[in-house]
Design a protein around this nucleic acid. Structure first.
Lengths: 115, 115
DNA sequence: TGTCGTACTATGTCTGTCGTAGTAACTATA
DNA sequence: TATAGTTACTACGACAGACATAGTACGACA
């Protein structure tokens, strides 16, 4: 299967993760699975990429974490919820996406022109 | 005006530059101006980004350089021409773009859902 | 004489992503 | 009962593309 390289996805992980937090808090493992499912296995985020994105985005005030201490078996799970700044960041990134898409499409040749 | 950040454009400079070499060789300054014009001032590539992309892509065999020694005033200009491998790289990058676009669009919320 | 445009080169920094590794608890299967 | 698999992370270091800053050098124009 074709793969998406780290260079082309760079900068979009924020959009992807924040999208999955728009309606309710979630945590790493679940988000990871949702990305895989929603993208129909076309994009599988690396664990380290995901968790370092959490750290970065929390530092930037886009998300807030809270720990579920009461899980069965005494395990802990760190949830993240979107902040208002994060929602705004998501909106801005979506706008940027639209702009970027427009620009890049200008540099995609017609299939015919490549033969 | 909205700007395109270095993280979202990363990985697409190859496409952009190679597109402008599809039909004829060109050189840095001209390509830089063409990117600006074609994108309607939405994307202005940094000089260092452009020239380091040249170096990288020549190392990878996607482009070849040759110097015009006979310019007026004894100035030199370095041209780049696409190789067959570069054309293939361009094709592959375009495919990757289509895939990436599909994936990212799944994580863009409807305008309504954001209110 | 000085500024603007042309056409680069050099050097070092930044940051998001990735590779590798490790921890630890539960869960299904043989 | 052993072990492989799933869940749910954390730590550390490396990489590479983009960027900031600076400098060079020639020509045209005022």
């Amino acid at each position: 299967m074709a793969e998406i390289s780290s260079d082309v996805i760079r900068g979009y992980n924020d959009i992807i993760i924040l999208f999955l937090l728009l309606n309710s808090p979630s945590y790493g493992y679940e988000i990871s699975k949702q990305i895989r499912t929603l993208s129909e296995d076309k994009y599988i985020i690396k664990e380290t990429t995901l968790y370092s994105a959490f750290t970065r985005m929390e530092k930037n005030g886009f998300i807030e974490s809270f720990v579920d201490e009461d899980m069965a078996g005494g395990k802990k799970r760190t949830y993240y919820r979107l902040t208002e700044a994060g929602r705004e960041h998501y909106r801005a990134k979506c706008e940027e996406w639209k702009l970027t898409k427009e620009v890049i499409e200008k540099f995609i040749a017609d299939e015919g022109a490549l033969l």
